[in-house]
Design a protein around this nucleic acid. Structure first.
Length: 759
DNA sequence: GCAAGGTC
């Protein structure tokens, strides 16, 4: 009466086995081990995520062998086959499937988990043992007590969840494969010229690229317009307060100048009104993956991929709960007391936690979504910053954010005051505002959630409302300013705002969003420059040619419709084959439309090539068209949809033709080498970079040698900071020990003998 | 050669 439990990954298998009793390991083959629990006659077999995936069948392997359209219409164009690493897992499934009488699917408690267990794995078990009983264990976390409880309450398999995942996989494969081939083959003449092999198209990635394109379009076409502001600096006791003219911003220069010239020498402001409002700010809601990634990328200034990897590492070390969750509501039975008790003695969080118990604040805030898969992200241990359980500093920093955020859920509301004053300077009215934190509440444990507050103002003289008293109090004016400013375009996306955008538009899942951003980077559609994401020419080119005809596919509405129908399968309101057929039909119509418009698209491309504008491909190399100087190519030209090159490239100082690329490589896992190297292998020119800190190649160039500046982000004494170097000057400086090419503060710098001349 | 979704 043996039982086989299938888990999604090794750590989960180990946790399940150890919760059920004393465990021994059996090495089944080179890759696979199972955990044996003799006391219960249980074998726990860990998979490695999906062990099967959709691929084109043999007849469709070659891109040109069949019409890409047939991938949509031919039901035999794709098939589910074992992944590269699937084989050893499949033979283990067969071996233990044969000798067990019950098979328990113990993969993650979500759609993909059900799909992995019931669709990828179980078929191999039932093939060798048709009579085996199939059950499922629903695990919200890997704590011993939760596992024991769930094992006593096995559930029937959630087939509808598994089918929902299966439909998603089929739809994505059909759309992705057919469209990638069709678009790549169409653009072939162009792509060949720019040394690009293919242009990938996918339900999620192409939609995201479209949104980045829309933002880029606004930025490129943005016409800044001037406006003027008048402000005054007032002295209040020992502090200063900036007040703004109530008619800011002025669009008419003459009016602004007229007012300014009348009042510019005035030294007295009459205090007309003071109003103070206080407001309570409630603690945040529990942390799901999406919010956690935003929190981490924003506060630690790391990219989304690294943030997710660090969460995963913390989870595998059993320091936090499962990091992939959409829930921001705890189940009513969640044992917060047990978690909080661990923090009572913590050197930094202890006092806050003791206050929680003292004030009986042990119920967390509540969000809106309880998806019933995993609990919100929660610390499982109370660890000091120097704990050896942290694999690296980043893990410690991420844990610190998660732990503080969790404790904040139980904290008191914060309280702020908002003081507004109205003054009169020679009959012109000015307003000032200052926000002050009155009670820190939960901000005390999670200061990173707090907005910036001003220092409290010294008490202002009372403003008499009675006209009989005659004079009103006055404040000294330190100075009055008239400034000319320019309207600004919206900012480019960062990892944090891209994640926000994807969440808002329901693009990708909690766990794939960082990977989708990475795909766009790998395909040379977009590029990170510092914290900003730039659309590259290839990305612009692709969307610009699709935007006329494929709006219904590019728009995130397409994906939300797909996901709506997938939910229908999960809720047993729709059937998988009908959903897949309906979406195939939808997409086939768009596919045919693309074919119909092909000549137009090619014509547009042709026009592009003959306008002499630069198209850049991989590594931002200039690959076709007449080249322009980097400076003039910065200017915007969107006439006729021609992409304006976005980034200047750091040209090799020796061969002066090829760009330098940034290389960060690990060697023996211990040493990290960072340098810039010429993209032309035969040139071999390289420039060293500082050993410490992470480098980013910037757009701005050195005013001495015109080479691109590199920003070095690093830390010392626990504080993060950055500085700028010109790699070329810096390397020359290293040679002559002159200290040139280095500036700690400004971006556009001019360094001579170690001193920045622009300071 | 391709997707998106898992996991390492």
């Amino acid at each position: 009466m043996s039982t086989l439990i299938i888990s999604e990954k090794n750590k989960a298998a180990q946790a399940i086995a150890e919760a059920l009793g004393p465990t021994t390991k059996i090495q089944v083959n080179k890759l696979v081990k199972v955990y044996h629990v003799p006391s219960r006659d249980v074998y726990v077999l860990p998979l490695r995520g999906h062990i099967q995936q959709y691929e084109n069948t043999a007849a469709y392997k070659k891109w040109t062998a069949k019409d890409p359209r047939d991938i949509i219409t031919d039901p035999h164009a794709i098939a589910k086959i074992p992944t590269k690493f699937g084989g050893p897992y499949i033979s283990a499934l067969k071996k233990y499937g044969k000798l067990c009488t019950t098979c328990v699917v113990g993969t993650d408690a979500d759609v993909e988990g059900c799909n992995i267990g019931l669709m990828d794995a179980v078929p191999f078990v039932t093939a060798v043992n048709p009579k085996i009983r199939i059950m499922q264990i629903w695990l919200n976390d890997l704590q011993k007590s939760s596992i024991q409880k769930a094992y006593m309450n096995l559930i029937p398999p959630k087939w509808s969840w598994a089918y929902s995942g299966e439909a998603r996989a089929q739809i994505d494969a059909i759309i992705g494969f057919s469209a990638t081939r069709e678009v790549s083959l169409t653009l072939k003449p162009i792509l060949q010229g720019i040394n690009v092999k293919f242009t990938s198209i996918g339900r999620v990635q192409t939609s995201l690229l479209y949104l980045i394109y829309l933002r880029e379009d606004i930025i490129r076409n943005f016409k800044p317009s001037p406006f003027w502001t008048i402000s005054a600096k007032l002295k209040i006791g020992t502090s200063e307060l900036k007040v703004n003219h109530v008619k800011n911003n002025f669009t008419d220069k003459k009016i602004a100048e007229g007012i300014y010239s009348l009042i510019k020498n005035e030294k007295i402001a009459i205090l007309e009104a003071v109003q103070t409002k206080t407001r309570k700010i409630n603690p945040p809601v529990p942390l799901n993956t999406s919010k956690a990634l935003q929190l981490i990328t924003k506060n630690l200034k790391i990219n989304a991929k690294v943030a997710l990897k660090t969460l995963e590492d913390l989870y595998l070390n059993k320091l936090i709960t499962y990091p992939r969750t959409d829930s921001d509501v705890y189940s009513p039975t969640y044992d917060h007391k047990a978690v909080l008790q661990k923090f009572l003695t913590h050197s930094m969080f202890g006092q806050f936690t003791r206050d929680l118990f003292k004030n009986r604040r042990i119920i967390p805030t509540k969000g809106k979504h309880d998806t019933g898969d995993h609990s919100p992200i929660t610390p499982l241990e109370s660890l000091e910053p120097n704990a050896s359980k942290f694999g690296n500093k980043l893990q410690q920093q991420v844990y610190n954010l998660i732990a503080r955020y969790y404790l904040a859920l139980f904290g008191e509301p914060a309280e702020e005051s908002d003081t507004r004053i109205l003054v009169n300077i020679k009959n012109e009215k000015f307003m000032g505002q200052t926000k002050v934190l009155l009670k820190p509440g939960f901000y005390s444990i999670a200061p990173f959630l707090s907005p910036k507050y001003g220092a409290p103002l010294p008490s202002l003289p009372p403003v008499s409302s009675s006209p009989s008293t005659g004079s009103k109090p006055t404040l000294p004016v330190i100075k009055i300013d008239l400034e000319e400013k320019q309207t600004q375009p919206p900012p480019r996306y960062s990892d944090t705002s891209l994640l926000q955008l994807m969440e808002r538009k329901k693009l990708g899942t909690k766990s794939t969003r960082p990977a989708i951003i990475q795909i766009l980077i790998d395909r040379s559609y977009i590029q990170r420059q510092g914290r900003s994401v730039f659309l590259m020419d290839l990305g612009f080119l692709l969307i610009d040619s699709l935007v006329m005809i494929w709006k219904p596919f590019l728009d995130p509405v397409f994906t939300s419709n797909v996901e709506h129908q997938l939910d229908g399968i999960l809720n047993q309101k729709l059937q998988m084959p009908q959903v897949v057929d309906a979406i195939k039909k939808d997409f086939l119509r768009l596919f045919d439309l693309f074919r119909l418009e092909k000549p137009k698209i090619l014509q547009k491309m042709q026009a592009l090539q003959t306008t002499g504008n630069v198209i850049r491909g991989r590594n931002n190399q200039i690959l076709s068209g007449k080249t322009k100087s980097p400076r003039s190519s910065q200017t915007t030209n969107t006439k006729g949809g021609v992409p304006a090159p976005v980034l200047s490239s750091a040209k090799c100082p020796k061969c002066k033709t090829h760009p330098m690329k940034l290389v960060v490589s690990t060697h023996n896992k211990a040493k990290i080498y960072k340098f810039l190297v010429c993209n032309e292998p035969s040139c071999k020119t390289y420039l060293s970079l500082p050993k410490k800190g992470s480098p980013t190649l910037l757009k701005s160039t050195c005013s001495i040698c015109n080479f691109n500046i590199v920003k070095i982000s690093t830390s010392a004494h626990g504080k993060r900071f950055h500085y700028y170097i010109c790699p070329l000057c810096w390397n020359r400086g290293l040679k002559h020990q002159s200290g040139e090419g280095f500036c700690s503060k400004c971006k556009a710098f001019h360094i001579v003998k170690g001193k920045c001349m622009k300071k």
